[in-house]
Every structure is written in C-alpha cells, then in structure tokens.
Design a binder for these strands. Structure first.
Length: 649
RNA sequence: GCGCCCGUAGCUCAGCUGGAUAGAGCGACGGCCUCCGGAGCCGUAGGUCAGGGGUUCGAAUCCCUUCGGGCGCACCA
C-alpha cells in the first residue's frame, strides 16, 4: 500500500525541486522514526545542501512553498535538520487499508516464468537435526513468499542417495552388524534414530581399523552402479529415511513438489550429456601430468572470483573415471534450467501427491502434463560452507556460455546452527564454547525430539491456563482438541525461531530460548491474533457490529487517530514492500520482524484502547478499524511464515 | 597464506540504499486482571556500537587498518 504513496510523494518533490531550484533530482522517501513527525519524509534538502550552498532548512522551506500537496495528504512540514515531512489525511488513508490485500501480486513478477527453490536436501542416512530445520524453514518461507507475490514456484528436495553418507550406514548394517536386507526392512521405527547412532558408530569403527574403509569404497561403487545387495540395501535405507524426513517436515507444514534423486541423475547419464557440453566448449580439459594427472578438471584461474587459490583447477572427473559431486551438480543445474536436453521420468512418491524422479513403471502413472524443471531462476538453499562449490557450479554454466543462467543461479546461503554452551552441556557434550553439530560424531539435537519437547510444553501451558481437566470457560473451547492446538503452538514457536534469525549469523541454538513462548516468539504472534478475534467475538455476543465498513472509516474525523493507533495502520501498509524486499534480498527475517512489530503495537493498543466499553462511537469504530487492519495484515505475514493461527489458545 | 561471515545492553539479537534521541526480547528490579483472556501491558536500571585512522554538514552503517571469533580454500558431499 505504501509504495504507491511513496511514488506520489517522490513525484511531488521532484517537480517542486525542478521549479524551485531547476534541479533534476531523485528524492529519497522514507518513513520517519516517530509518528508525530509525519508519515513519509524526505531528507533531500540535506542531500542537496552542499550542491546548493544553502542551509538544509532553508532549502526545505523553499521546497514546501513550491510544493503542490498531493491528494490524500493533509499537510507538509519541515522538521529537524531539514526534513520535508508529509502527513496523511488519516481517515482517508485508513479507509483504503480496510479492504486492501496486505500482500498481493508483485508488479515485478513475470507470470510466465518459474522459480525453482531447492531446499532441505538432507542426506538420507540418519534423522534430521535442527540444522536441517533451519534450511527447510528458510526454503519453505521463501517459497511461500514468492507464491504470495504471484511467482510460479517449484520446490525440489534433492536426495543424495548414492553418496558416502548412505554408503557408511549400509556398511554399518551389512558389515558391522551383519544384517541382511530383510533385517533392515524389518527394523522398527524410529528407523532414522537407529541410523543416527549407527552412523557415528561406523565412524569409530573405521578409525579403529582404517582397512575397513575399503568397504566404504566398494559400497559406494555398488550404489553408483545400482546393482547388487549393497545397492539394494542402499535403496531401502534411503527410501525409509526419506519417508521419515518427509514426516518430520510435515509436522511443521513443509512439503515439496518433487524429490530429485541422485541415483536417477546417474542412471539417466545426465552427467554424460553435461560432460559432452563441457568438453565441446573447452570448459574442462584432461590433465596429462601433475597432481591432477588422469583427471578432467575445470580451470578457474581466469576467473576473477577464484583468484588466490592454491590449486586453480577443480577436478570434475576423477582419475578412476568417477564423477565428483560438483560434476553431478553442474548437470543437475543445467537440467533445472532446461539446458541439458534430457529429462527425468516421474512417479508418485508412495502413491501420494508428491512426485519423485523414478524409472517409470506401468502402474506408477507418469507425470502427464506435469512439467518439472525449466526454471528461469534457480535458488539453492544451502549452508554458507558450500559457497565455494556453488560458485564453481555457477562458473560451470558461465563456461558453457549460459551467462544469464549463471547470473540466475542463486545460492541462498545461511550460516549453520550450533549448540549454545549451556545447551551442549545439558545434553552431555563438552560445552566450553559454541559446539558445531556433527552427524558423524552424533552431536546434535534431533528435529523430532525438539518438536516433541515443544508440543509437550505447549500442552502443559494450555492445561495450566484451562485448569487440570482441560476444560475452558465454555463448551466450545472445551471440545477443542488440545493436541491440535499444542501442535500449532509448537509449529509457530519453531518456525518463527528459525525465520527470525538473520541468515548471515550462526545461530547458537539454546533450548530455553527456542522453547520460549514469550516475547518475540511464534506464540506471541498467535496470541495477538487470538485477542483481536476475541474482541470481535465479544462484540458479536453483545449484539454490536463486529466489522466497520470502509465508507464509515473514511468519514471519521482525523482526530480519532491517536499516534499509537496510526502507527499500526502505517506499519500494516508496509507489508507488501517488506515481503518484496525480503524475497529480493533473501533476508526473510524481515518478514518475521515486521510481524513482531505489528503484534507488539497491537498488544500495546489493546491495553490502552478498549473497544467493547468505549462509549464514543467514532473512537470505537476507529479502534475496530485498526483491529481489522491488524488482523488481515498479520494473517498474511503468518501465512508466509507458516505460523498457524488458532481460534483460541 | 587467500577468501567469506561475525564483533552493538549481563545474555540472544534488530538497526532498511549513510540521516532525526542507537532499539527489541530474555534476565534483574518495581507496578498493572471488580474493565475485550496476564502466552499480555507499563515503568526503572543497563551502551567508549571491539580498538584506531579516513571520507562527510552528518558514520553503528561507507573505506583503510589492527585485534578477537567462526567458516571455507579435496580425486568428501
């Protein structure tokens, strides 16, 4: 909403600048820190003071004289050091907010293009931990934001089912424990927890006798070839673990459009196609000698961003003929853009709505009209430690002459999640400093454990508020399923915790902090909405109108909008630009922060300005209007954040 | 050695393309439920924005530098 007004103000200022000083200047328009100062402001007089050799306030005053007050504004003032501040005609602007869609299709979105978001990508060999949750929440919130902005978006979850990590657990089952494939199949849930322990056990087993690493190598080959008992065990393992990961993510309302499997990339020779292209364009060369003798390498020395590397060449094909991860990833990235000239075959995963890449089977059903890949922009949500590899993938596209696609290959990098000293110590790990999680060492907090803990705590809090028998003040609330509500609160707490952190910062995961339901938290957002809804319910019960109409708001005297009420209206009008900026800069914490700002303002207003007991009809309707605007705005942001909003708490 | 990220209140962190008095949450202390639900609100205390230079009318923000901390720089993913 506010973007339009910003443009209008900028236009008015520009023509005033032209008229008063004969300048062609593009003025900055911002929101002043306090509402009494105004609603939109420009520091352009400060910027131009040097050029015009005049005092900023004098410039500002002159500007205001020449300024034609734009429609919808009540006055313009000069404030502070020389700011030109615009004040809305409040009732009029508030009325436009009543029916406004808080976050609508963005003008900058091309409806024909598709963005591919890849996230989660957990190695299918053990349970998901909280680090994976950060990845999945960021990816999911990004996808939701893009879709809210009208962008066609496809979410892919890459399954590395032929890598070392899977191989290690296969070795654990077959060699360390002497299991058969049938034994693995018969293991009870939680299968991913079993593998969690086994994986770290295998690590120690290798260390005890390094000759055992030969088993890993042999298993890796079997996985890549897709044949034999080891491959069969690997397929079963990956399939069971993926099912568990999907179940974990479903608990926090995260889903996908497509699972892409590395085994299919190998089976369909995607790399062979990519390799042909790389050789043709000279992007890779064969090393006859040196430390990389016998390998195909991609030279990076010419590229600006790879200066200063010890070894300016990246191995793509090893001397034994196998392909490195980067090689496979370049092929996969080409496919995402529709540049490979090959496609997967598709089937439903476990007969559900989710698609996976798979050998087509007669009964499995093919994708029909479903078309995957062929994105115009690809956003890979991968932690910051892999920045180097992501840059090489991009350089690969560049070397193949796909400049646009290289530019549109975006690495959404975020920092890792470590354990806080306090939490690490409580879990029995040595914790003198922040502790990095490690699947190999078995250090970490499992995602499902954290979710269980959050749900238990939610349930306790609900029961505490409702009394020991779980009944509320009335029958409707008593019949509510406390389990459902507890889950909603847990989801809100977790998702908000992950979404509010700036991506460039390492999260020091603290269990107390993460399970807090007070202050800046998901439940705090939920509670604010519950309060807004309660007001309207109470109005209904009292036989009063629970909504105020736009035309009524427009006719209110401007004096009813005290600065604190007005602040919330103005904040609500910024939802669209906040979400657009978040999506453009991949700084999704902006959305979470904005949601908290809104909720904080509303909670404060709630205590200061009663609605039900207000006798003055104008005041009551203004407050009701603010409540409506708040509700709509926070609902829109909560939808993007994936924070569910319960009817009661 | 080269590159990226971080250093703001006791703790965890915001601070938008340089701008108005550096803000939240947690913790501490003190208040507020005969009044729309206290998962809330109001107030108090707490800051050499790591240090030092520079650019500017103006720097937490931009540049240089020093010091701390984290992460990368594989024929592993």
């Amino acid at each position: 909403m506010l973007q339009r007004e910003r443009t209008i103000v900028a236009g008015a200022l520009r023509s005033a600048l032209s008229q008063a000083f004969g300048l062609d200047h593009d003025p900055v328009v911002e929101v002043p820190p306090q509402r009494r100062l105004g609603d939109l402001a420009s520091p352009c007089a400060l910027h131009l003071a040097r050029e015009l050799r005049q005092a900023p306030r004098a410039i500002a005053t002159r500007l205001v004289e020449c300024l034609e007050l734009p429609e919808g504004f009540e006055r313009v003032t000069v404030e502070g050091a020389g700011y030109v501040n615009f004040h809305f005609a409040r009732s009029r602007f508030a009325a436009t907010m009543i029916d406004a869609v808080p976050v609508a299709r963005s003008a900058s979105v091309d409806s024909r293009s598709k963005v591919i978001v890849e996230h989660t990508n957990i190695n299918p060999n053990k349970a998901a931990h909280i680090g994976h949750l950060r990845n999945a929440v960021l990816g999911d919130v990004l996808a939701r934001a893009l879709r809210q902005l009208g962008q066609t978006t496809e979410v892919q979850n890459y399954i590395d089912d032929t890598g070392v990590q899977v191989a290690d657990v296969v070795v654990g089952f077959l060699d360390l424990r002497g299991c058969s494939v049938a034994d693995i199949e018969a293991l009870p849930e939680p299968f991913d927890y079993v593998c969690w322990d086994l994986y770290s056990e295998v690590g120690r087993w290798y260390e005890a006798d390094p000759k055992r690493l030969e088993l890993r190598r042999r298993t890796l080959h079997a996985l890549e070839a897709g044949e034999g008992r080891r491959a069969e065990a690997g397929r079963l393992l990956a399939r069971r673990i993926v099912a568990r990961h999907l179940a974990t993510m479903a608990r926090i309302d995260i889903d996908y459009d497509l699972l892409t499997r590395e085994s299919e990339i190998l089976r369909l020779d995607f790399f062979v196609a990519a390799f042909e292209q790389l050789k043709e364009t000279g992007a890779v060369r064969f090393e006859e000698s040196g430390k990389n003798a016998g390998c195909w390498v991609m030279p990076l020395a010419d590229s600006e961003e790879f200066q200063g590397l010890e070894d300016p060449d990246k191995v793509i094909v090893r001397s034994d003929g196998t392909v490195t991860y980067v090689g496979k990833d370049i092929a996969y990235q080409l496919w995402k853009f529709g540049l490979l000239g090959r496609d997967f075959e598709y089937a439903r995963f476990d007969g559900g709505p989710l698609w996976e890449t798979a050998p087509s089977e007669p009964e499995a059903g093919d994708a029909g009209d479903e078309r995957f890949g062929e994105g115009s922009r690809v956003i890979n949500v991968i932690d910051a430690r892999q920045a180097y590899l992501q840059r090489i993938v991009r350089a690969g596209l560049e070397a193949l002459g796909h400049r646009d696609e290289a530019r549109d290959s975006i690495h959404f990098a975020y920092e890792m999640v470590a354990l806080s000293a306090r939490t690490a110590e409580r879990l029995g790990f040595s914790g003198d400093a922040r502790l990095e999680m490690s699947g190999r060492k078995g250090i970490g907090v499992k995602a499902d454990d954290l979710l269980d803990q959050l749900e238990t705590k939610s349930r306790d809090e609900i029961l505490e508020r409702r009394g020991p028998d779980g009944t509320d003040r009335d029958d409707e609330a008593a019949s509510e399923d406390i389990g459902v509500l507890a889950r909603q609160i847990a989801v809100a707490a977790l998702r908000f915790f992950m979404a509010r952190a700036t991506t460039t910062r390492v999260i020091a995961f603290d269990i107390d902090d993460a399970t807090s339901f007070e202050g800046e938290s998901g439940p705090y957002l939920q509670y604010s909405i519950v309060r807004a809804r309660n007001i309207r319910r109470r109005l209904r019960e009292e036989g009063l109108a629970q909504e105020v109409h736009r035309s009524r708001v427009a006719s209110l005297p401007d004096g009813v909008w005290s600065d604190d009420l007005w602040d919330l209206v103005l904040l609500a009008s910024q939802c669209q630009e906040v979400v657009e900026r978040a999506a453009a800069t991949l700084e999704l914490s902006l959305i979470a922060r904005h949601a908290v700002d809104l909720a904080q303002k509303f909670h404060a207003i709630y205590h200061r300005h009663p609605i039900l007991h207000e006798q003055d009809a104008d005041l009551r309707d203004a407050r009701l209007a603010v409540t409506q605007v708040f509700e709509r705005s926070l609902q829109a942001l909560a939808q993007i954040l994936g924070v569910p909003l319960p009817a009661r708490m």
